[in-house]
Amino acid sequence: MEKSQYLEGVEKKDLFAHGHRACGGCGQALAARLVADAAGENTIACVATGCLEVFSSPYPDPSWRIPFLHSLFENAAAVASGVEAAYKALGKGPVNIIAQGGDGSTADIGFQSISGMFERGHNVLYVCYDNEAYMNTGVQRSSFTPLGARTTTTPTGNKTRKKNMPMIAADHGIPYVATATIDDFRDLQQKIKKALAIEGPKYIHILAPCPLGWGHHGELTVEVCRLAKDTGLFPIYEIVDGKVTNARKIPVKVPVEEYLKVQGRFKHLFKRGVPTEEVAEIQEIANQNIERFNL
């Protein structure tokens, strides 16, 4: 694909400015920029403690050109609820309020406050940047860490499957849930815009590879996302009013080995190049996704 064609229709406003301190090839930095630029100037970002917060908001030079509010690790959704309540009470707005956090603050420590925000029906979009472990603090396991992945707290490989947050979000009865990755700018930005046009709580789950924690080369970040999609390990879909729609068909299905082999965190799953039993189990997860979403 030609570069110009690929970027056609992609919003670029630099509302999340360059000069931040993310690592080279950081999936989250790219995702945060796409989200901010899709949402536009009339947006408030409520960000949880984590990589994004640390690399984008050191005093005195934050990277945000939209209002940015950070307080703690586990309360971005509750803080965003408070901002929304204030706007309502003061008769201000309309304004886009986007709570954002990594997988740790979404799946683990902040899970309760997100559930509360969904259940209460606040007009807030929650965006999860999923890099499948606590990367900011040195690659520790989160409940989004996939089966088999090696982290510093699962040195022999993670023994459990990933928590299915999009489905949990949808089961709150919220009007819009979507998954996206950073390899498809247009799709990601369209989903952000679509979500922001809907009244009520929304959830978008973005796969954001971390070269440091995943052990892949920085220039492969986008490619790793493509592989995650094309293996079926990270299905792309929307859930509108409880119904799964727009599941992205995989043009050519790729065996999970292709995805696992480019990442150091899965290296132990191959003995002298031969896949172990766990690879078959991971392939089974991909197959289940392919069947479930008719990819």
């Binding site: 309360n75 609820s81 408070g82 901002v83 309540a85 204030a86 009470a89 406050s113 209460r120």
Partner: peptide, 28 residues
Amino acid sequence: LQAEFVNVESEFSAASVVLGASAAGARA
């Protein structure tokens, strides 16, 4: 009383909601 009354799921969130509201300019 004209106010937003937010019924939360814990005191942790209660404090976080008033934090967000105050940062957005509300008396909380």
